[in-house]
Every structure is written in C-alpha cells, then in structure tokens.
Design a protein around this nucleic acid. Sequence first.
DNA 1: CGAAATCTTGATTGAATTCAATCTAAGTGG
DNA 2: CCACTTAGATTGAATTCAATCAAGATTTCG
Lengths: 230, 230
Amino acid sequence: MYVRTTTDQRPRPNTLDEFGLSGASAPFISLNEFTYQKGTEIFGEEEPAVYVYQVKLGAVRSYKLLLDGRRQIGAFHLAGDIFGLENGDKHRFTAEAVVETIVRLIKRESLQLMAAKDVVVSRNLLSMTTRNLEHAENHMLLLGRKTAVERVAAFLLEMDCRTGADKMSLPMSRRDIADYLGLTLETVSRALSHLRKAGVLTFLDHYQREIILNDRRRLADFDPQGSAQP
Amino acid sequence: MYVRTTTDQRPRPNTLDEFGLSGASAPFISLNEFTYQKGTEIFGEEEPAVYVYQVKLGAVRSYKLLLDGRRQIGAFHLAGDIFGLENGDKHRFTAEAVVETIVRLIKRESLQLMAAKDVVVSRNLLSMTTRNLEHAENHMLLLGRKTAVERVAAFLLEMDCRTGADKMSLPMSRRDIADYLGLTLETVSRALSHLRKAGVLTFLDHYQREIILNDRRRLADFDPQGSAQP
DNA sequence: CGAAATCTTGATTGAATTCAATCTAAGTGG
DNA sequence: CCACTTAGATTGAATTCAATCAAGATTTCG
C-alpha cells in the first residue's frame, strides 16, 4: 500500500522539536523525510498506523470514501501540519499528496513510548487531537448548515488564515475543494466566479489557483460564522 | 447562564470509576448530580468550561448556531456519555437537555490536576477526545456526501447501536434529528415514512419516537457506509 | 375544552447537481 | 517546433433532491 516515490530518500536526523511534540526526554529521535509525487497515497484508510507525518513542503488531503466512490475530504494539511496521528492503531483516513510533497516521518511507537514517560509529550498529543476535533466540529457546521457561497467564502478565509501570505496559491483542484466542502466542482467554480464578480477577490492565472483577496472584511460577510445567543 | 433547575440537588459522593476516567490516584473525588428540565441549557458556547458532565439519565444535545439561527447539532449524549470535556477553557458547543435529564458533574480543574499526576487518567482523556474526533469525522462524511434517506438510516443504526434495546425510544424531536443530520424536519419525516413503507421499521406510537427496527440488515443497505478502495 | 406542540403529507419552489459545451494551459511525441 | 491530446476550469441549460409553504391530524397540556 505504501506507494512511495523514493525521490530524496536520504535519512535526515532531526530533533522532535521540529515536530512540535517535544518534551524533556528523548530530544534526539531521528526523523526521516520522504517525497511523494502528486496524487500518490501516503497511507490508506484502515491501514495500520505505523508512522506519524508532518508536511515539510507541499500539501496533503485526508479523505474517506463511500462504497460508490463519493469522497469527503476531512482536512488539507499544509507545510508544518501534522497528520496521520492516531490513538488507535489504524488510520481513519486515506492520505494523498495533493502536489509533490515532502513529509517528515516518525514512528508512532516511539512517540507513544515517549508520551508514556513524558507528560509534556502526552499533553501535546492531547492538544493536537483537540485541535483536530475543533476543526472537525466547525466543519460539521459548515457541511450541515451553510450555503455554497458561504462554504467557499469560509474555505478561502481558512486558507488565507493558514497560508498567511497576501497572495494565496491554492495547491488543490476545484474537485478537491468541492469534496472538502460537500459540493460539486461546478458549484465551487460558480461560487468563486460570484465572489470575483462581487469584487472581493481577483484571479491571477488561468487555472485560477492564484488568488488575491481584495477585501477580507467583505468576504467574511459572505460567511455567517459565529454563534448567536439562543 | 447556568440555568439550573434545582430538583434533586443533594450532593452525591461517587467514585471517579463511574465517570470512566479513573486512575490509581484520587479515587474519591466527590461528584454532584443535577437535574435539568427538558429544553434547559446546561452550558453555553464560549462559556468558561468549569465542569465536565456525564449523563446519568435522559439525553443532551450539543450544538453550534450561525448568526441567523441555523443550528447544527454535533452530537447527542445518552445515558453514560461524557460531554463538555474541553482541553481549552471554553466550551465549543451549547449543551441542552433534550428531555428531563440527570447529569453527574466533576470540576474540570480537579480532573486536570489528576491527569497531571496520573498517566491512566491522561490516557483516558486522550482516548475520550479521540472517540469524539472519530465521531465527528464520520459525521462529516454523512453531512457532506450522504443523501437524506442515507442520513436517516445511519442515524437509526447509530441510535440502535447505542441504546442496545430491541425497541428504540428516541428522546429527541424530528427537528433535533434534522439539525443533527443537516436536513429539515419534513425531510426527516418523509425519510422515516419511506423506511416504514419499505418495511424496515415500525412506529409504535403517534409521535413515533418508539421505533422497532424490523430488519437491521436491510436498513444498513440504505446506508452506504464503509470505504471503497481507491 | 381549547390551545399549543409535534408530526405527516401534499404542492410548489429553489439551490445545487447533472449534463454538456467550450476554453486555455500543459504536456507528448513525431 | 508544432499538431494533438489531456487535464483543469468556466459557463449554460436541464434536472433533481431537498427546502419551503401550507394544510391537516393526533397528542399533550393548561
């Protein structure tokens, strides 16, 4: 299952600090790097979880499939993000490289060993899981109750917030965005056109993955995020 | 905010074992019980998380609202379930009693203190959070990619699995179910009628919250759950 | 009892999907 | 290098599934 394109496979020892999980103990567990070509699987749903991963460069999609092929992407993982972190010993998503992607690897086993000894590590494990949970909770609200334009606006704001840069360069296709937002690719395209016509964003290239947000404020108006008092 | 109906308010010391979080240390932290009337708020979104809760009797809904009142219920909590467990110090959902509900309470503070000292407690905290995450991940798939009938079928199977009993007695209204499944109450009603006509279930009362599943196998056919190989 | 709450069912509408055509950019191989 | 294919995207038209609007039925409750 581990379809690994073996580009740049030399082992690169690193500290756990870079993984954002470090504690006092065992600061020198070696991390390896792997490169995955665009579209290749990093791990499959239901496979034993041997490694935990961190994106060094590129982007990864985690998704579930229904029997007939309908796909729901649960999250995109960008540079710095950790993914494939499981408490149980099976992966609950399939993970694929969206573009050519370099990831750091650490054995789940060694992480759990460390967590057993080091409270800091185990606390980081918990807060990481909590962040994932929080994201999933917000995404349930989006999927269950938001309109197409609201979803796309929320997506752009999320990506803008995560990439930080002024000009966004989305690595994923319209289909990926659609499967993340519970829409079709056509609807995503229409919503983006709508927002462009409304003046809140500008496309820079034909494939239109280079996007400038002209007016974050007005974009946020398209997303009714936030809780009302009952 | 803490709208507490003070029925049956006498403090009842219990062991943490009943909370399912116990470790070697501090087995005798006292737990209080509270009763909430149908429809009352247990805690609100964004409120400081002071307590962690366990349903002793009844049912609780956790939800988020959009500014215009659209509601997404993230989970129902039934007898035995723990809810309101936060890693940060704010609640991320509003929790309300679906029917008259008795809950056990424990101070979040004391739980965190215990977790700091006791690995077993902290491990239980993590696995509890992971279970919540797993549920949210599956629910994203449902909300993003399943049809109305598939959602209702999945809901019935989930409830059947959790209540265990042969005859299900759903405590929540059609509107609650709808807000859990990202549908309208009319669509939920139609889907249930559809399943009844198909013979997989039987209503026992007029309000039709008493349901018998005649054929779990055939009901499962309405839900295409499960992963296909890519 | 009358009023309110909950649910079902029917008719209509509408937002998003599906189907289809077109466009541009990026290979690919002679 | 250029013709040709492929992939990704937009846009329009038709369709569909679920939402909305509306009416009626049964139960609960004051």
